[in-house]
Amino acid sequence: MNVNIACHGCDLLIDVSELADGSIADCPRCGGFLTRFRIDAYERVVASSIASVICLILANSFPFLSFAASGLESVMTLLSTPGSLWKHGMPVFAFLVAAFIIIIPAVVLFLLLAIAVPLAQRKSRWWLQPAAHLLFKMQGWAMVEVFMIGVIVSLVKIMAMATVIIGVSFWAYAAFSILFTFALANLDRYQCWNLIEELESE
């Protein structure tokens, strides 16, 4: 008998060695998600990561929002979000915002590509283990969708006071948040580590 996973929710031992392509294993006792097996999982990760990179570059190259109130207009870019916090004397917040919305997502994307490209080709690379370690530790700190919700919530308030023009960058960042989530969702922790181990032992 091949028992090879313990449910993270209730610690039940389960055999998930013979999953068909595209199928999901849930815990038979508590219903918690265990793993999902897909033959083309890493191709999916590579595809959505590359699309995310393009959207992130676009999001940083165009205006994010423009405000017009009583004849004055101000254009805001994505990078000016931490920039204006810095100017208003909040360097710690500026650093955190820059990290959560740009720096960490960019590093996570880089790591996703560094892992998924060799795994899609079923090739072993020396950086797979350290990169996977760093990726799974960092992914919780990328707060792309949290920022998106924050922007939408504050827009409600600002729209009452000024005319808001939504820029190209806003849509690019919105697309980025969806693609980024999709890329992360396609990388299954259990399958990814199993494959890394398998490739290293060959």
């Binding site: 313990a6 993270h8 610690d11 039940l12 031992l13 799974f136 922790r189």
Partner: peptide, 17 residues
């Protein structure tokens, strides 16, 4: 049975038993 009753634990990072 639970993993603990076999003296096993799943790794939080890589799910290895």
């Amino acid at each position: 049975t639970s993993a603990l009753s076999h003296g096993l634990a799943a790794c939080h990072m890589c799910c290895k038993l």
